[in-house]
């Protein structure tokens, strides 16, 4: 089948970009979307042109590397699917598509369809963990965890950090991403001691990184390739509110020594 692609080309973060039109003649319906771009890139290379830069790695929908907008939708039209798992059988012969990078202030474009999502790492570093040094863990079965809690924690932990939620949100909020971590750890007994601190620090960091606030539009949930639920955001708001009342950063005076 034939596919027409309009792709955002941008040399680097400081140059302006523009849409460039490409026609691809023999696309196979069993190809993945990225394999279709591979074919385009091989053609461009043979012609001595620079191939289109896009991020990818596992091509199994788990590493969260891939992701761009197809006709204005992050990861394209199929629900619950990353773009690496999207197959050409979902498009029709002669279809014209517009590919753009994720757009958000906190995700500067690096080149073509590739953006910088390192703000996510900085949010995790602010508190998205359980403080436990190697070697100091108790015997695993000494902490029983309700199956429902473990299952719900796992639902939230399934987030792959691709950033589609931010790209979909009219406020470019990272609330779904942040809340998924807050819920994952907060639902487990191991995560309880740092629950307030975590919510406080991660939420503040999100704002500092230039992400917007959540106004309950719900685009993020609709677009999330891993089905992470908006109910996590409710939990984040609850934890944050509680933290505002109860949490104080550690006193420098600290423990006895």
């Amino acid at each position: 089948m034939k596919i027409i692609l309009n792709i955002w080309r941008q040399k680097n973060s400081s140059s302006p970009g523009k849409m460039v039109r490409y026609e691809l003649g023999n696309v196979n319906e069993h190809m993945s979307f990225l394999e279709m771009l591979d074919v385009l890139n091989e053609e461009l290379t043979r012609k001595g042109e620079e191939p289109v830069t896009f991020e990818h790695d596992c091509r199994e929908g788990i590493c969260g590397s891939c992701g761009f907008m197809i006709n204005g939708i992050p990861h394209g039209p199929e629900r619950g699917t990353t773009v690496c798992q999207l197959h050409m059988r979902h498009f029709h012969d002669g279809e014209e598509l517009w590919l753009e990078p994720f757009r958000a202030k906190a995700f500067p474009v690096l080149k073509d369809l590739m953006v910088d999502r390192s703000a996510f790492d900085r949010i995790i570093a602010a508190g998205g963990y359980i403080s436990i040094n190697t070697g100091s863990a108790p015997e695993a079965n000494s902490i029983p965890v309700k199956k429902q809690c473990a299952d719900r924690a796992m639902d939230a932990a399934a987030c792959i950090g691709c950033g589609a939620c931010v790209a979909a949100c009219p406020n470019a909020s990272a609330s779904l991403f942040v809340s998924a971590k807050i819920a994952h750890l907060g639902l487990l007994p191991q995560g309880e001691p740092e629950r307030d601190r975590r919510a406080m620090r991660m939420v503040l960091k999100m704002t500092e990184e230039g992400f917007g606030y959540c106004t309950n539009t719900g685009e993020c949930e609709a677009i999330c390739p891993k089905g992470v639920k908006i109910e996590n955001i409710a939990m984040m708001h609850r934890d944050f509110t509680r933290a505002v009342a109860l949490f104080r950063e550690e006193s420098k005076a600290g423990g006895a020594g």
Binding site: Y129, A137, V145, A157, H184, L185
Partner: peptide, 22 residues
């Protein structure tokens, strides 16, 4: 055996039985 202890303490949501054990 230490690995499992460490990972559970970090909050890795391993599959559980109804009784709460791994």
């Amino acid at each position: 055996v230490n690995i499992i202890d460490q990972c559970v303490a970090q909050g890795v949501p391993f599959a559980r039985e109804y009784g709460g054990t791994l």
